[in-house]
Design a protein around this nucleic acid. Structure first.
Lengths: 174, 174
DNA sequence: ACATAAAGTTTGGTATACCAAACACTCACA
DNA sequence: TGTGAGTGTTTGGTATACCAAACTTTATGT
């Protein structure tokens, strides 16, 4: 039983994600609020909701409040996670401004497989956990992209600081 | 004069990108080949081409070969660059397999601003240029995502090797 | 309690992008 | 120099996703 799980369109993913956010804020989602967030008219929302209801992703009765079903909540959560991971990468690693990170994450979240998002999470963790990188390495990226060329002397100092922070076996050079 | 440059749809971007690739391979693009690459029928291609012709992005006369106009070539080149950058990041940094990198890049290329792609290029360059990272650091990422926990001793050795390769000012710890 | 404002729905229309299949053109070669 | 296979186009139809505006239901204030 239960409707077969067809892949969602970008639009449908946006609706689910918005409904989840509104549920968290207001317990339930209202058509008006969904319309506002997505920048569409209320009439467009009604049609989309009927659709999501038929797919078993939301509880939808005309003129009543909207809530996610367990399946809908799971899917919405996955989408929201993608969004958050991508935004964090764009803002926290690529150091883009928050608005740019947000708008690009909104679009990218529909384009990335779960496997890619998972790997991205691991990569972000790796940067933070690896002694060779970490927060100061990310901060130094600003330096790199705003200058013409990296300064070798500054690089030596940076590496030395890194060693000082984390310790390393004695080095030798040929 | 000249048609005002409306933002392209994902579909239109795919057509332009495909035409550019076919031009490079065969001098000109043929409807049949475009249809094959994009997985659509020839009839769908005709309609799309008429559209791109009206936008001034391709030279389109019914029953004749198809070539990009200078504007079309510029746009197609930008899209192809996005695609390549994203694929390289997915494959060369996140270490995803080539197929996954390719299919995700195909989708992501439509979702990322030029500014984000540019920053991603700088980030990839940074990884390769910074003494603290570089190719061996990327290789070690495999280790990280395939193990439960990083091994502190291995991390010390890794950092020591890095220092050995690049040299660093003498370190001291409190 | 009831008028009216606010919220939600429905209907009819647009635009995109595709398919299926009939149709038209082109070119190679017989 | 036809003729047929292959290539390109057109037509009619589908599905999505939206808007505009008429309409219905619910909620609010006095």
């Amino acid at each position: 039983m239960g409707a077969k799980e067809t892949a969602l369109s970008e639009s449908q993913e946006d609706y689910l994600e918005t409904i989840l956010a509104l549920e968290k804020e207001n317990k339930v989602a209202r058509v008006k609020d969904i319309a506002e967030r997505l920048g569409v008219l209320r009439g467009s929302v009604s049609g989309a909701l009927k659709n999501l209801g038929e797919k078993g992703l939301i509880h939808y009765e005309p003129y009543s409040f909207i809530t996610l079903t367990p399946t809908g909540k799971r899917l919405a959560g996955e989408i929201a996670r993608r969004h958050a991971v991508i935004r964090d990468f764009l803002e926290g690693v690529l150091l883009l401004n928050p608005e740019q990170a947000e708008t690009n994450a909104c679009r990218m979240e529909h384009a990335m497989d779960k496997a890619v998002v998972d790997r991205l999470v691991q990569f972000i963790d790796y940067i933070h956990d690896c002694p060779r990188t970490g927060p100061d390495w990310i901060e130094a990226f600003v330096n790199y992209y705003s200058k013409e060329k990296p300064d070798p002397e500054q690089c030596r100092e940076c590496l030395a600081e890194c060693v000082a922070r984390h310790g390393a076996a004695e080095s030798s050079q040929p």
